[in-house]
Design a protein around this nucleic acid. Structure first.
Length: 639
RNA sequence: GCCGCCGUAGCUCAGUGGUAGAGCGCCGCACUUGUAAUGCGGGGGUCAUCGGUUCGAAUCCGAUCGGCGGCUCCA
């Protein structure tokens, strides 16, 4: 028998007989926690054997790839349990996801909560039996025959697309599932199991095809990890902007008003006004010109831009007035283009940066509406930069710098950049001028390189008119959404026949950079609520300080303090309720007021206030001016 | 839009076919209070809406509206 050499990442090497299993190697390395292995860069089952020299990396639940395999096997376990309880069930697909796994299944009826409990219980039983999970390869024809007999029509459809002569299956305890693998060595590795939810999901993500039942679940090697996960879910719920928005009276919805149409309550409107003033003032210092454009526009505007062709379904239907067809403004760019076209532009004028807090109305499908994240009426921090081709890179860089500056002030550091390019194979959505795409995309890439930014490439993520860079953040519910965006557009200038007169005296075509820094006010508000978990920093807090009189006889002094602070531009209220001080403090804490100023006999006599901070509690008495200095500094530094 | 779950007082929720409940909030009275809940009393619901089954419906069935979790979509 030949000998082979196995090298481990720590540099150690060991000789084995040919045909040694990766599980054996894991045992010898004392790595009982290994779930799967990477041999010469390829992921393999631990049950797999080696017949030549290899460098082997043993992966555990702590590595993303190990977790993926763990959850993938968990999905198989789920399918096995479902098949045991519902033999007529037809299986579709069951992949791992960021947090757990799901399996799409067709049992001709939906799964109810009781079903989930039964399935979960069965999964535990099956895991406890600790059956080996084995890979088997069978000829494709055999697989087809088998699935045909079983009536597994979804598996058959998948099988049809596999060109290989042999297909791999994984078998555990009599249950077989077609799968590329790899998988855990045995089902017993799956310890803590929880099925989370069910939902409908279209077969192959196509809304014209069968609706399957999807079961989501999560598993862990240890119960404590599951408990921790559940705990985190609960914590996330407490940050949820919909909950805090209601509790803190920031915004609301009303059935009578309509779906997806938010009401900004006084406290939320205050935060919004601060955000708006902040961004508009900042943009004015960066050469943007702020404008206003109407909420209605002639449909032909969007026919020219092309948006009508692409987004008709999500625009409110046209209304006929005086022989004109009007739509609610679904987006701002054509309006700003009209402003650009108001004058003949010289190359010396460029770039022209037109900005607006643009209110838009989009008919989002009812099932997609979620709190302030997805609404039907929204106001975008929009701007369009009209520039010469040679200015694109520098303008793009300026926008990215602005984004970074703003994020620093909002204390946002957890985000990802997505670079979205067009997919040349998608001839339906993207215009066919490949040269235009090449130009736009290489400009974007070069600019990113020069900024030394790394981004995540999304092929096919571009707009119909051009590529873009999005700043992606995560919501409390764990979903990724874009906050900021910068988009390069060579197409709309052409469609609208935009021009500027260049040095050569001839008309040239400008480029448009579409950009949004703080997103829509709705989305930004939702994000900030969750980001700060309701504790807005002083500069954003709707109520910055509240004065709490100890007894009714201190009300007058309390009002004096309030008036003084209000004249200094602070947002401040007096708690006039007939309650004990500890109750008022509790109320103030619950309502997330950054500062509480307690005033009683001592303070009234000495002209002081006893300061309590939301974050650090009682700070003791201080003269009013000292308090003012403190918070002025805090507002300026946005801390 | 599609699939599932849900809808009881301002809020959070209990109430599985037999006369609508609790806590908090709100209003009133008393206490005049020193850093996370003072006590007592009161008002408040056509049980989302409409229709059906039943002697009788918050409860069972259907439709509609709205919310939640997904799918699809997201200029």
């Amino acid at each position: 028998m030949e000998r082979i050499t196995v090298r481990l990442p720590d540099g150690s090497a060991r000789e084995y007989a040919q045909g040694v299993s990766l599980a054996q190697i894991a045992r010898d390395a004392g790595r009982s926690d290994a779930l799967v292995a990477k041999a010469n860069g390829t992921l393999r089952d631990l049950r797999a054997t080696l017949d030549q020299d290899a460098s082997v990396e043993l992966l555990t639940f702590d590595q993303p790839e190990g977790r993926e395999v763990y959850w993938h096997s968990s999905a198989h376990l789920l399918a096995q349990a479902v098949k045991a309880l519902f033999p007529e069930a037809k299986l579709a697909i069951g992949p791992p996801i960021d947090d757990g796994f799901y399996y799409d299944i067709d049992i001709g009826r939906p799964f109810g909560p009781e079903d989930l409990e039964r399935i979960e219980a069965r999964m535990r039983e099956l895991a406890k039996r600790d059956q080996p999970i084995e890979r088997v390869e069978i000829p494709r024809d055999e697989a087809i025959t088998m699935y045909r007999q079983m009536g597994e029509k979804y598996k058959l459809e998948l099988l049809e697309e596999i060109p290989d002569a042999r297909v791999s299956f994984y078998r555990q305890d009599g249950f077989m599932d077609m799968c590329r693998g790899p998988h855990l060595p045995q089902t017993g590795a799956i310890k803590a199991i929880k099925l989370l939810s069910t939902s409908g999901a279209y077969w192959r993500g196509d809304e014209h095809r069968e609706m399957l039942s999807r079961i989501y679940g999560i598993t862990f090697p240890r119960q404590e990890q599951l408990d921790e996960f559940v705990h985190q879910l609960e914590e996330a719920k407490r940050r949820d902007h919909r909950r805090l928005g209601k509790e803190l009276k920031l915004f609301a919805f009303a059935d009578e008003l309509g779906q997806g149409l938010p009401l900004w309550l006084p406290r939320g409107a205050m935060v919004r006004r601060i955000m708006e003033n902040y961004i508009v003032d900042l943009e004015l210092t960066r050469g943007y010109q702020h404008v206003y454009t109407p909420d209605l526009a002639a449909l032909k505007l969007y026919k020219i831009s092309g948006h009508w062709d692409y987004f008709r379904e999500s625009m409110y239907p046209p209304m006929q007035v005086d022989g004109e067809e009007l739509v609610l403004k679904p987006m701002v760019c054509p309006h700003h283009i009209m402003i650009y076209k108001q004058e003949q532009r010289s190359y010396r004028d460029l770039p022209v940066r037109i900005a607006e807090l643009g209110r838009m109305y989009r008919y989002e499908r009812s099932g997609t509406l979620t709190g302030l994240h997805r609404v039907r009426s929204m106001t975008l921090n929009d701007a369009h930069i009209f520039c010469r081709p040679d200015q694109v890179k520098q303008e793009f860089a300026a926008v990215v710098n602005l984004i970074q500056e703003v994020y620093q002030e909002f204390r946002i550091s957890d985000y990802r950049l997505d670079l979205s390019l067009h997919d040349p194979k998608d001839r339906q959505y993207y215009h066919q001028d490949e040269e235009l795409w090449m130009t736009a995309e290489s400009l974007l890439r070069e600019a990113l390189d020069e900024l030394r930014l790394t981004s995540n490439l999304v092929v096919g993520g571009a707009n119909f008119y051009g590529p873009k860079l999005d700043v992606q953040v995560r919501t409390a519910a764990g979903k990724v959404e874009s906050l900021s965006t910068v988009q390069i557009d060579f197409l709309l200038p052409r469609r609208f026949e935009l021009e500027y007169i260049a040095e050569d005296g001839k008309a040239h075509r400008p480029v448009i950079i579409h950009r949004a820094i703080i997103s829509t006010m709705e989305r930004m508000m939702a994000f900030l609520i969750e980001h700060f978990a309701g504790d807005f920093p002083l500069w954003l807090a709707p109520e910055q300080a509240r004065i709490l009189p100890i007894a009714d006889r201190h009300l007058e002094y309390a009002r004096q303090v309030r008036d003084r602070l209000a004249r200094e531009g602070l947002r401040v209220e007096v708690d006039q309720s007939n309650e004990r001080i500890s109750y008022k403090v509790r109320q103030g804490q619950i309502e997330r007021v950054p500062y509480m100023l307690i005033v009683g006999d001592k303070e009234a006599q000495s002209g002081q206030v006893a300061v309590r901070s939301r974050a650090s509690g009682d700070l003791g008495p201080m003269p009013l001016d000292q308090f003012l200095n403190r918070i002025r500094q805090e507002v300026t530094s946005k801390s």
